[in-house]
């Protein structure tokens, strides 16, 4: 691992921790509902000490919105990515371990889901299920599991030919127990490399859905703040710029942390 890689990993982790701290302490840092009108509308950033980042056209505090939005974006991103990876692991392990017809069917389905444009699928799912935080998680999970499934399947195909798996078979363990307790742990390591990408992608999809108005209307989210800021793009561009910086920082920190985590594990493996 190069020095640069280590440095970016540290920077990424620091930003991520800061964002997590803001999200966890949102109620202490900015008490009250971030969707409440609290000040004069369209205050510029740094103009009023009570509203450090200004207010929007309805007099809502931008700083409060960003802090509470962190909660939504990070939670949805993490939970959706975790669910997607779980689905991918399940499908990949079954396909790789069972082989034959089951493998064929599962892989054709994986290919089909991967062929549908991911965002279109997520958009369709949310619009059919209804716009709530839980449904956004479900939609992202159902549309972004295929890469994990393919990776896990390839690893399972490799691992299941190893001697210790044969030993388990000879010892008479049940096939599914072998698949999930013996083969899967050996096949998980490359999945680590996908965590950062999957979480970052989930945050981006969540923000895009929110931008299009498909998010929980009772929760302030970064994407929804940008959509709201579009109306005053000419007079108050910061309403669009600030939440976007928050999204970019979140995705950047997650992918940097994920990359360096994967590199670290990979290095330890090779060593």
């Amino acid at each position: 691992m190069t020095g640069l890689m280590r440095a970016t990993g540290v920077v990424g982790a620091a930003i991520l921790l800061a964002l997590l701290a803001l999200a966890l302490a949102a109620d202490q840092i900015a008490p009250g509902d971030p969707l409440r009108m609290v000040g004069r509308p369209l205050l510029a950033p740094f103009a009023d000490a009570r509203f450090p980042l200004g207010t929007d056209q309805l007099g809502r505090d931008i700083w409060a919105g960003l802090v509470h939005g962190a909660r939504v974006s990070l939670t949805v991103g993490a939970v959706a990515a975790a669910a997607a990876i779980c689905v991918g692991i399940l499908v990949g392990t079954l396909a790789g371990f069972l082989g034959g017809l089951a493998d064929d069917v599962l892989m054709r389905v994986t290919e089909a889901v991967q062929t549908i444009p991911t965002f279109l699928l997520a958009l369709a799912l949310v619009s059919v299920l209804g716009a709530s935080a839980v449904n956004v998680v479900i939609a992202i999970a159902l549309s972004s599991w295929p890469p994990t499934a393919r990776l896990v399947r390839a690893e399972v195909l490799r691992v299941r030919t190893l001697d210790y798996v044969d030993a388990a078979r000879v010892a008479g363990r049940a096939p599914l127990a072998i698949a999930f307790l013996e083969v899967l742990p050996g096949a998980l390591q490359p999945v680590v490399a996908l965590i950062g990408i999957t979480v970052g992608e989930a945050i981006l999809v969540e923000s895009a859905l929110a931008f299009l108005g498909l998010s929980d209307p009772n929760l302030q989210s970064w994407g929804a703040m940008i959509a709201n800021g579009r109306a005053t793009l000419r007079v108050a561009p910061w309403l669009v710029i600030l939440p976007g910086i928050a999204i970019a920082l979140a995705v950047l920190s997650v992918s940097l942390t994920g990359d360096s985590l994967a590199a670290r594990l990979g290095a330890r493996r090779r060593a």
Binding site: L204, F211, I226, A248, V251, L252
Partner: peptide
């Protein structure tokens, strides 16, 4: 890296 983290609509 930075471009990759930016949402397209933004």
């Amino acid at each position: 890296l930075i471009l990759n983290a930016m949402p397209g609509f933004w």
